[in-house]
């Protein structure tokens, strides 16, 4: 799957395109792993072009939560479609401190990183 990566001022934006299923989420996993290993724990994932997320896709975010938290990082997901937002919220992921899930209207991401 195609994942664009843009280095912002205080964080890195990842923009995956397409379905985040068992196969494609492996690529996202590799990207995030590289960032976390390099100590870049301020990560923004742009969901505007993600159409579907499977449990394997969710697993990618879940597996880095502890590590990002321990390094004082932040994971911000933005522009989720209603369906995908539901998937995250049903699982309870919207209740976590280090994982911020923004509703489609909220496009201003930078503020969540600047605070830290």
């Amino acid at each position: 799957m195609e994942i664009r990566q843009i280095q912002q001022e205080h964080y890195v934006t990842l923009s995956p395109v397409g379905d985040l299923d068992a196969h494609s989420s492996v690529h996202l996993d590799e990207k995030i792993q590289k960032l976390v290993e390099a100590g870049k724990v301020m990560i923004h994932v742009d969901f505007s072009e993600v159409t579907y997320i499977s449990s394997a896709g969710l697993g990618v975010f879940i597996s880095y939560l502890d590590e990002i938290a321990s390094q004082g990082g932040q994971l911000v997901l933005s522009q989720l479609s209603d369906n995908i937002y539901d998937v995250f919220s049903i699982l309870g992921l919207n209740k976590l401190d280090h994982l911020i899930i923004l509703s489609p209207e909220e496009k201003e991401v930078a503020t969540y990183f600047v605070q830290k």
Partner: peptide, 17 residues
């Protein structure tokens, strides 16, 4: 009404949330 799935939060905060 609910909380996080099992295995997501592996540190001690789970119960308090």
């Amino acid at each position: 009404e609910g909380t996080l799935g099992l295995g997501i939060l592996r540190s001690g905060n789970y119960r308090s949330m």
